[in-house]
Design a protein around this nucleic acid. Sequence first.
DNA 1: TCTGGGGTCCTAGGACCC
DNA 2: TCTGGGGTCCTAGGACCC
Length: 458
Amino acid sequence: MRSDPSILHVDLDAFFASVEQRDKPSLRGRPVVVGGTGMRGVVSTASYEARVYGARSAMSTAEARAICPAGTAFLSPRFEAYRKSSLVVMDLLRELSPLVEQVSIDEAYVDLRGADLEDLEVDTVRKRLERLDADIREATGGLTASAGAATSKMLAKIGSDLDKPNGITIVAPGEEKSVLEPMSVRAISGVGPATAARLRTFGVETVGDLRRMTDTDLVSVFGERHGRSLFALARARDDRELTLSREAKSISNEETFERDVHERHVLHREIERIAESVGARAEKAGVFGRTVHLKVRLPDFTALTRSFTTTSPTRDADVIARTATRLLDGLDLPQGVRLLGVGLSGFVAHAQTGLFDLETSADDETEYPEVFAPSPQDEPAHGSDAIDLSTRFSPSPERRWRTGMDVHHPDHGNGWVWGSGRSRVTVRFEGPTTPPGPVHTFAVDDEALSPAEAPSWT
DNA sequence: TCTGGGGTCCTAGGACCC
DNA sequence: TCTGGGGTCCTAGGACCC
């Protein structure tokens, strides 16, 4: 914890709804709800006029429609417009100090130690924040923000929430514990509905209550990390520094269907569509991922996740889709599917050629049984007959092994390609299941494969 | 007309290696 | 012969955040 209120938290007020009201004067002064407008939509942001009626973020749009008066505008989000205004605000923050941690499209921390201020006294900070407030209004055409400054991230964030909308709260050094004490435990970062409910069973509602629990008890109930963090944060001990830059660790897309889907072929088509977008985003980000994730939500809202890690990083939509389809086919889904998601993680900056490069050194003299490369016309559509690993195909410049490809081996049965390299292919048989089936590696018939083809292998 | 979509981090168990 | 830890990787699930 710092000795001066040099951490700032800035939060744009009802951001999506405010942008809509700014851009469309007829919406000003009226309740506006931005979010999914379909039957299964949820609210992203409700304007303050809509909050009067009880509309809230994360509420189902259906419920918001039921409680808001006629004349309430229900709008789909226009992310491009929001991004534009967000950028304007983030630039203003970076003008204030180069030490900015952007948390989301409408929220950021700023380290005022990087600001050009004569000192970090409460009055000096307040004056500067008042100027920032005016700058944000002017630069964005009337959007407002709420701000909090304090000696730690937690207190700065709590501060920005204390006087919404468009308020400035500075928690003076020494006041942290008394500000925190009467607040609900939900004010602590990392305490959501589940943790709050468990704490309630111990008679803990406020941060003051939480302080009566021992370190040992909290660790035994919530685990090492979470327990220690609760103990420290309840005492306003928060040394977290700003994270000035971070790289994405995963890319995913998911979709909730308007109606639960029962047909496998529809799910397969959806996987292809979603994988297409995941692959395109990975390409845009310049990354290749080793792990493909599948997420399924059932009509009863339980979520299933499956993942598969290969040695061959990819961003090929086709490979992602095949892998995800494999994972889906390992699930029994008699109730149908409410949501389907596909993701990619385990990023490396460049695609590896495959197992050969990753796992085989030049002096590796392991002998593998030989199999033969398939030709593209023999590559089966998923679900149809597998490629027979014991059959020699006629050479073709396009033939290649692809992760997820169905194969058959006379000794091992059915399987699918798990990874491949210039001279060998690895197959997982009877997979993917938990626990996974056996993996066998074969040397491929590389006579017909020119080295130039290798980079296109996935 | 219950409950989106994009993420991050943690835990726990098993495999495997040293 | 029996009994070890520690570390890492992978997988599944869950909590949390905006």
